[in-house]
Design a protein around this nucleic acid. Sequence first.
DNA 1: CTTTAATTTCTGTAAAAACAGAAATAATGA
DNA 2: TCATTATTTCTGTTTTTACAGAAATTAAAG
Lengths: 179, 179
Amino acid sequence: MGVEKYPEALEFILHWGEMGTHWGANRSVAQVHALLFLSDKPLDAEAICEALDLARSNVSNALKDLQGYGIVRRTHVSGDRRDHFVAETELWDLFMAITAERKRREIDPTIAKLGELKQRMAANKDLPAHVRDRIGRMHEFMSTLTTWYEQVRGLKKSTLVSLMKMGAKVARFIPGGKD
Amino acid sequence: MGVEKYPEALEFILHWGEMGTHWGANRSVAQVHALLFLSDKPLDAEAICEALDLARSNVSNALKDLQGYGIVRRTHVSGDRRDHFVAETELWDLFMAITAERKRREIDPTIAKLGELKQRMAANKDLPAHVRDRIGRMHEFMSTLTTWYEQVRGLKKSTLVSLMKMGAKVARFIPGGKD
DNA sequence: CTTTAATTTCTGTAAAAACAGAAATAATGA
DNA sequence: TCATTATTTCTGTTTTTACAGAAATTAAAG
């Protein structure tokens, strides 16, 4: 029996599906993820179709998407020639994978474009200074943020967890940062 | 003359509009924001319509949206009875306003739902343990993250900037976190 | 190599979102 | 208060995205 038969599990799946549309995925992708996340065993595509009442092709695309995010992976079940799928259940890894992929899709292209515009603006003499300034500062700001992100992301999980637990207390280490 | 006449400014606006669709806004909203961001003077709705070739109603809704995010505000230009609008240009404040609003729209409802499910699952005895576990842990995880966010968000800007500049060096303050 | 099953890609349809224009409301000034 | 102008809300259309079903491809087993 699939987890989707339990009311709370189903409600989780449906909620996840709705929120998914606000998270840059579509309903089907998010529902498939939720189902796999709650399942304690690998599921094949056909089982997912039946559990969620989705077309086979739709599930196929959703699985491809989720694998693109790195939060679902194919696995093999012995004695079964079909592909099976499992979701990342370690929440920290899930979070890291999602942020990394969203940065790649949603931030990196903009930084690249702003860098390009900066180049071209340097040559264009009749461009108002404030336009050059604002685009330039936006580029710097986003670059700084992502540099910080890349650095922090490289820390080991236990360090990050400790930092999180400290919360605002990290400010103690900054001169004049005691608030 | 409006900034949208400069090729680099226009390209910025168009790019911002496209990316906006990946950032939870629609093209019009993001374009209006980009235009105001680059403008050095308040613009009225009609001027925005002409600059971006959008319908008046569309601009009206975009402005409402942007004010909802807290990144655009109405302002008054003396001798003109029309509303005028300006965008937040301080990038740090812009970033903070956007993250706060996205959290409110995209995270808080899910935490609330997970909390509710947790309650109900406690009573439901035939629910598989791993389902209860995973939903429960997801709730904890998201709560922990947002608590951390709320705390750090409360620090003053200068402290946050210092922390950002430190990057991975914050790990120095964590026992055994020197990587 | 051939047959069969599994998976993906393609194409048309359905659903959702964005948008324009019109109508209604609200605000300002005479 | 009335007339005028600005703004928002509503309604229908267009565009985009999601999705189902069919066709094509790929992979496995005999």
